[in-house]
Design a protein around this nucleic acid. Structure first.
Lengths: 338, 338
DNA sequence: GACCTCCGTGAGAGCGCTCTCAAGGGGTTC
DNA sequence: GAACCCCTTGAGAGCGCTCTCACGGAGGTC
């Protein structure tokens, strides 16, 4: 922690010739102080290169000045996904303005989760942004019960939860993607879904279904194959769909990684994209533009969502109300696969 | 932070019918306590689901119980690189055993760096692992001067620094790679180097040069082109080398991303790998095995290096001596490009 | 000139925890 | 039976900071 000889408020005050109270007033910025005193304190502080002891400060303010961005995911997944860095930079930007430090916590094992709960409950952070929570997960509620402000990225699995969240309009985005396929004249449209233990997987499937129905098309489970949001999963699911529906001519993949997998499977099967089969992804990941051919996809404003998450959390921590979930709109990015 | 009604040691002690001191003894695990008292305290603590207030504890112990893993890199780079997650998981594993929480901090802007320095000096963390420090950077020394234990991944730019570090044997690995190329019969071997403001870039170039010299080959600057550790950089550098040396038949790329770029450039130029040109990368990134053809490369034990970093830091924090840098050996992974 | 108001300041009480010090109590030894 | 010892326990002093409270003095009002 700090070096043994770290200067204290006391020593700053002594050097400035004022009381600890006055020194505290200027350094913590409350109450009013004469200009001369303020100046003396500031000078003394900078001469000693004083930094307040956070533990002491936290003890009385009950604030730590840092927030956690918690990713419930194996480390590799965390890094493989293009979603996290964007959320991170959005949140970081907002938090930085308020001088709060964002700490990233990756929770892979049960033991790590437990440790984090203790960590949070012991006052290390003032709040947490939870990203990538799968299925029904008790973590958010545990934190809330412990009195820790929490916001989530993505619609929680149990809607009963009182945790405010920010989510892309997954249903709407999936509808847009599906409609786009239909409007391009696809007759037989199928979907590669994400994991069904994630709300985002469910919602994108629901959008697909709803849009099909809106166009008076029949939806049946045989039109969907489940990937797991990975390239390999998308490839396998597509092969399965191809076997079931040799005549398919439109694929909506619930994320770009799986869409890339679909592209691979299609290429392997000798099916031209977009002439023979059209493909739409979701997320507008970096990989989308780089794919061959460049992928038409649905973009979600992830950086802005990260910002909004941070803003929400800040409001929560300040005890202000949060007016429920924020749903961010999506836009279709047309490239070469449709 | 913690909820206003969070139970304190006092309330645990009261419920257990002992003094605060005794309750503290069992919960913090020092001194000796009778079994009956211990049991009563433990029961009371669990009934109240007591978690010690970290601020209060830190105030007296001058330990925060968390360490920072600091990455000095733009957020995108942080996520793009396969190196970080491995260091992270290695460090995390070791730290977890000691119940210390690892917090990840990504420093992109000057302002963020400044805030982090304050953060660390104010006692939020007990030590820091610095990863990916470029060029001559004052950050490590600032932290050391502030009394914060620091270890670094990678040999620092200024060797004068007193900061212990863990590094792969970059010179040796580059020699191995180069030797491999020579032994396969390459007559005209060139290299795509990393950024020269990074020690790792310099060291891998040095290994290349040294090995060439050991085989009585001439080295001249025209045999090297600088990439920037990215695929695009590797592709461009390779094109440049191809223009300079149409007869080149061996390429040592200082990392796998650039090697992948080299493969692209070679394919575009219609040069068969490995028949016409042999290629070796460095790092054994995930991409290496997935490349077409799968890339021969030099593996560094990154997870183990992360573990060692954490161990070093722990020793430093405990006031034990650290016996200077650790250099990790590398191994050649032969795949299809040689 | 007396009274009031208000501003700047210092004293001091905690925040919840750790850890030293001293004291009490039970057993053991001679 | 007295002296001793050791084990367990409680009291209490801080750690460095924030923030309330009260006070003294300066300025304003009638």
């Amino acid at each position: 922690m700090t070096s043994p000889s770290a200067p204290t408020l006391e020593s700053v005050a002594a050097r400035a010739g004022v009381s600890r109270a006055t020194a505290g007033r200027v350094l913590a910025g409350y109450g009013r102080v004469s200009d001369s005193a303020r100046e003396a304190v500031l000078r003394a502080a900078s001469e000693l290169s004083y930094v307040p002891n956070q533990a002491a400060r936290s003890l009385v303010t009950r604030r730590s000045g840092s927030m956690a961005l918690v990713v419930v995911e194996p480390v590799e997944r965390f890094f493989a996904d293009s979603y996290f860095p964007l959320v991170l930079s959005g949140a970081q930007a907002v938090l930085a303005e308020r001088e709060v430090q964002l700490v990233l916590v990756v929770l892979s094992t049960a033991r790590e989760r437990e440790r984090f709960e203790r960590y949070a409950r012991s006052g290390h952070v003032d709040g947490a942004i939870l990203v990538s929570v799968h299925g029904p997960d008790p973590l958010p509620q545990h934190l809330v019960d412990a009195g820790i402000p929490v916001v989530m990225s993505g619609r929680p699995f149990e809607d009963s939860s009182s945790v405010p969240y920010v989510s892309a309009d997954n249903v709407g985005g999936a509808r847009t993607a599906t409609r786009h396929l239909l409007e391009r004249g696809c007759r037989r449209v199928v979907t590669v879904t994400g994991p069904m233990d994630m709300r985002v997987g469910q919602d994108r499937l629901e959008g697909f279904r709803t849009e099909l129905r809106a166009h008076h098309r029949r939806y049946g489970a045989q039109l969907a194959a489940s990937g797991d949001f990975t390239v390999a999963g998308g490839r396998a699911a597509t092969q399965e769909l191809l076997a079931r529906h040799p005549d398919l001519d439109g694929i909506f993949a619930a994320n770009d990684l799986m869409a890339a997998g679909a592209l691979q499977a299609l290429a392997a099967a000798g099916l031209a994209v977009p002439e023979r089969v059209r493909v739409v992804g979701f997320d507008d990941a970096p990989l989308a533009a780089a794919a061959t051919p460049p992928l038409t996809t649905v973009r979600q404003p992830v950086v802005e969502m990260g910002r909004e998450l941070a803003r929400m959390l800040l409001r929560l921590v300040d005890g202000e109300g949060v007016e429920g979930p924020v749903v961010a709109g999506t836009t279709l990015v047309e490239r070469a696969t449709t």
